[in-house]
Computed example of a mutant assay.
Amino acid sequence: MTLAKLTTVAVLALALGACQSVFQPNMRKPLEVKREAWEHIKPGCSASDCPLVNIDTLHFPAQPQLDAVIERRLLQFAAAGGPLPTSLKAYEESFLRSAQSRNSSYLQAKVREQHDGLVIIELSSYLDTGGAHGNPGRAFINWSRQQEKVLTLQDMLVPGQEETFWKTAQEAHRGWLISTRMDQDPEFVKNWPFQKTPNIALTYGAVVLKYDVYTIAPYAMGHVELKIPYPRLNGVIKPELFPGRG
């Protein structure tokens, strides 16, 4: 091949690469994220135990649809089963208007990790309305950058494999009982059996299942996490969602 032909081939390759970079975003490069955080106390309060609202959220300039998903999920925590507030600001104003001393509300969204075109966001909440202790909450968002949508469990699983997935999760629960030695306490095993959870994350190291307090363990044990290594989910999780295969 002559030098002229080699030069032409190189130019074409560079041009093709440039086109791909323009029309196909680089999924290995983390999505840009901006943090927005604030804490406000009840207007006019100067005591040491003023009611407060603390909000720590995220914005994604390249995919603002994700901003709306995050805000809605945080507002679902805030609503606690009641009517959904129209915005985080509206929730703050409403909470502080009626809150009593020592009442507080915390809402947080953070990026747990990004890999293979996925953004894994962990949501946290803590509401203290004067009881013996506050009420904490947790949730995950598995955001597909390519599809620009939240992945549900059905999106993650090979069709027909949901039962197998939960059986594998139950095995992970048995492993957790053994690792914590709670398997040696018959009352614990009886009172805190395995349950399903909606909080599932496709993290790089494993599929993570997180449980709200009082779900599979007492409040004092916090938010239990079960981890299932990907090799145990061959044929269960869609192959393109395995790290490194997308």
Rank of each mutant, 00 (worst) to 15 (best):
E240Q: 04
I237K: 05
Q114M: 09
D116F: 03
L66K: 12
H223D: 05
E92V: 03
R138A: 03
R35I: 00
C45G: 05
E32M: 03
D116N: 00
E225R: 15
W143F: 13
L96M: 02
R174V: 09
V119I: 12
V69G: 08
K34E: 15
N54R: 09
E39A: 14
I228T: 02
K42F: 02
R181E: 15
H133R: 14
P43D: 10
A80P: 07
Q100N: 12
E163L: 11
E162N: 04
A80M: 07
C19I: 12
Y204T: 06
Y219P: 06
L153G: 04
Y211M: 04
P25E: 15
V189W: 05
F165G: 02
A15P: 02
A10G: 07
K149D: 05
E36C: 01
W176V: 09
P85N: 04
L12G: 05
L226Q: 06
V11I: 15
R112Y: 00
A99V: 09
E39W: 11
R97V: 00
N26K: 06
R181M: 10
E92Q: 12
A109W: 12
G117V: 04
Q184T: 10
I120P: 05
E92T: 01
N103V: 01
A47V: 12
L118M: 06
V236P: 00
A217P: 02
L31P: 06
L151R: 03
A99S: 06
R138P: 03
A139V: 01
E240A: 03
P83T: 07
A80I: 00
Y211F: 14
A99G: 04
C50M: 01
G205E: 09
E113Q: 10
A4G: 11
P243E: 09
E92P: 05
P85Q: 11
V11R: 14
A47D: 15
Q63I: 11
L107R: 10
E93I: 10
V22P: 07
D56I: 08
S104E: 12
M221R: 09
C19M: 13
D212H: 09
L3T: 14
S101H: 13
S104G: 15
D128R: 10
E93H: 07
T215W: 06
M27D: 09
G44S: 07
P231R: 02
N54G: 00
V33Q: 12
R232F: 02
C45D: 11
P64T: 13
L127F: 11
P83H: 03
